[in-house]
Amino acid sequence: MGERREKLDIIKDILEAIRDKGGTIKPTHLLYKSNLSHDSMKRYVSELIEKEMMQEKEDKEAKKYLITNKGLKFLTDYQQIKDFTESFGF
């Protein structure tokens, strides 16, 4: 069994999934990629939308999620913060 993911890792996985799909992703695809339960994913998505790291867009076809510049910045800074956290172990 794998280690429990930290919140920081989950956010990174969600944003990375959107980025790797070219900046937009369907909710079902995100659910699969993020490896979260439906409820957990909804909670994280709401939080990330609130933090302006991603946006929700609804067109004729379906609902989609977009990564914002702030979300892309998070991915750049993620490794730095991850290294920092691991160095001190908190």
């Binding site: 919140k7 920081l8 956010i11 933090k51 998070f74 800074d77 730095q80 913060i81 920092f84 956290t85 001190f88 908190f90």
Partner: peptide, 18 residues
């Protein structure tokens, strides 16, 4: 400063205390 940056990014209190 680095810990504060982590706090701004994650909004986790442990980083602000650190």
């Amino acid at each position: 400063a680095l810990s504060y940056k982590a706090y701004k990014l994650t909004e986790e209190k442990k980083y602000s205390y650190f």
